[in-house]
C-alpha cells in the first residue's frame, strides 16, 4: 500500500440541504467515512449541511459545475433535469425502502435513458439512499379509520397528491420551513409524504406523533449521493474503485442501517405519545382507495416527463423497468419496514 500512502490527498466537499442527523445524511456519512478509511486517508471530506454550501434547488447544477464535489440530492430538487428519474416519486404497491434502493442501483446500471439523463445533468450517482416509507400521513391524534382523512388539510407535494385527493383529503402546499408552525397552529391537519425518520429528524413528531402508513407502496426513492462527472473523471482510478466497492458494501449493509434508524425513530414517536398505524390492503377502505388510484399517479409522471420534452420510448422503457425492478426487489430477507415493527409497539388510548 506504499503507493496509496504516497499519493496526493484528495479533498472533496460534500453538500446537503438537510441537517447532519437526517437518515439520508447518516447514510451518506457512513459512505464517506468508509471511503476515507479504505482509501487509507487519501480522501478527506469537508462536510456542509443544512444548505450552508448549496441550496436544494442549486444542488444538481452546483455539483455539475464544481461548486461542491459530492452532494445529497433528490430528483425533485431539479425535476426538469430529472424528468425520468422523477419516477421514483411514484409509489409502487408492495415495494419497500431497502428493495427500492437496490432496484435503483440496477436501474441506473441498466437503463440507458436514465444514464443519459444523469450524464446530461453532469452528475453520477454514487449510492441511492434507502428511505423509510413516505406513503404516510402524520397527525396529532390517531385516525382509526382511513375515511377520517376526508376533508382533512394535509401537506403534500408531487405527483402522489393525486392519490391523496382520491382519499378525500385536501392537499395543502406549505413551504417546508413553515410545516412545523402550520401543524402546531392548526393551519393543516396532517403532514404527508414524509418518512418516519424525517418526521423525527425535523421535530414534527412533537406536534404530530401519529403516523398512518398507507398501502400505496414506497416512493420518494430517487434520491442519493451524487458526484460531479468532471470531479469523478479526475479522480485516480484506484480511488474510483474504492468508491464503487464501498457502494457495494453500502447496499449490503442497508437493511441494518435502516432497521437501526427506523427503530430509533419509532422510539421517539412512542416517547412523544404517538406511534404508527398500518393500513394495509386487508382493510376494505384502503383496498378500494388503492384500486381507485390505479394508474393515475403514473399518468401525472408521464405528462410531466412529456412536458420536459422526453421521448415516448424513454418514458415507456423507464416505466417498464421501474415496475419490474421494484417488484423484483420487493422481498428483502432480514428486513421488515420500521412502520410495521413500530405499529406492534404503538398503544392507542
Amino acid at each position: 500500500n506504499a503507493q496509496a500512502a504516497s499519493a496526493a490527498k484528495v479533498r472533496l466537499s460534500f453538500s446537503s440541504a438537510l441537517g447532519p442527523d437526517t437518515a439520508v445524511n447518516k447514510q451518506a456519512k457512513w459512505y464517506m467515512d468508509e471511503v476515507a478509511k479504505r482509501s487509507g486517508g487519501q480522501v478527506q471530506w469537508d462536510e456542509f449541511y443544512a444548505a450552508s454550501l448549496l441550496s436544494s434547488v442549486d444542488t444538481v447544477s452546483g455539483v455539475a459545475d464544481g461548486r461542491a464535489d459530492v452532494a445529497y440530492f433528490a430528483s425533485v430538487y431539479d425535476p426538469s433535469r430529472f424528468p425520468l428519474m422523477d419516477i421514483g416519486f411514484v409509489p409502487m404497491p408492495g415495494s419497500n425502502s431497502v428493495g427500492n434502493a437496490r432496484a435503483w442501483r440496477e436501474l441506473m446500471e441498466e437503463n440507458e435513458a436514465l444514464q443519459a439523463e444523469a450524464r446530461a445533468a453532469g452528475v453520477k450517482v454514487l449510492i441511492f439512499n434507502g428511505v423509510a416509507s413516505t406513503s404516510n400521513i402524520v397527525t396529532k391524534q390517531p385516525q382509526d379509520d382511513l375515511a377520517q382523512f376526508k376533508g382533512k388539510k394535509v401537506r403534500f407535494v408531487g405527483p402522489v397528491t393525486t392519490a391523496i385527493q382520491k382519499l378525500g383529503a385536501n392537499p395543502a402546499s406549505i413551504a417546508a420551513e413553515d410545516i412545523y408552525e402550520a401543524m402546531e397552529r392548526g393551519l393543516i391537519d396532517g403532514i404527508g409524504g414524509t418518512s418516519i425518520e424525517s418526521v423525527v429528524g425535523s421535530g414534527w413528531h412533537e406536534v404530530a406523533p401519529w403516523m398512518h402508513y398507507l398501502p400505496i407502496g414506497n416512493y420518494a426513492s430517487s434520491l442519493g449521493v451524487i458526484i460531479g462527472l468532471n470531479t469523478w473523471e479526475n479522480l485516480p482510478a484506484d480511488l474510483q474503485k474504492v468508491m464503487m466497492e464501498v457502494a457495494d458494501d453500502y447496499y449490503r449493509q442497508l437493511p441494518n442501517i435502516l432497521a437501526a434508524s427506523e427503530k430509533a425513530a419509532c422510539d421517539q414517536l412512542l416517547a412523544a405519545g404517538g406511534g404508527t398505524i398500518v393500513y394495509d390492503l386487508t382493510n376494505p377502505v384502503a383496498k378500494d382507495w388503492v384500486d381507485g388510484v390505479g394508474d393515475s399517479v403514473f399518468e401525472v409522471w408521464r405528462s410531466n416527463a412529456q412536458r420536459s420534452r422526453v421521448s415516448a420510448e424513454a418514458i415507456a422503457s423507464v416505466e417498464a423497468d421501474y415496475k419490474q425492478k421494484l417488484l423484483a426487489h420487493a422481498n428483502v430477507p432480514n428486513y421488515t419496514p420500521g412502520e410495521f415493527l413500530c405499529s406492534a409497539r404503538s398503544r392507542r388510548g
Binding site: 426538469s80 408531487g158 412536458r307 420536459s308
Partner: peptide
Amino acid sequence: DSFIRAESRFGLIR
C-alpha cells in the same frame, strides 16, 4: 437553459 428544459419547481403543481 431554464426555458429550453422547461424548468419548474417541485410542489403541488408545476
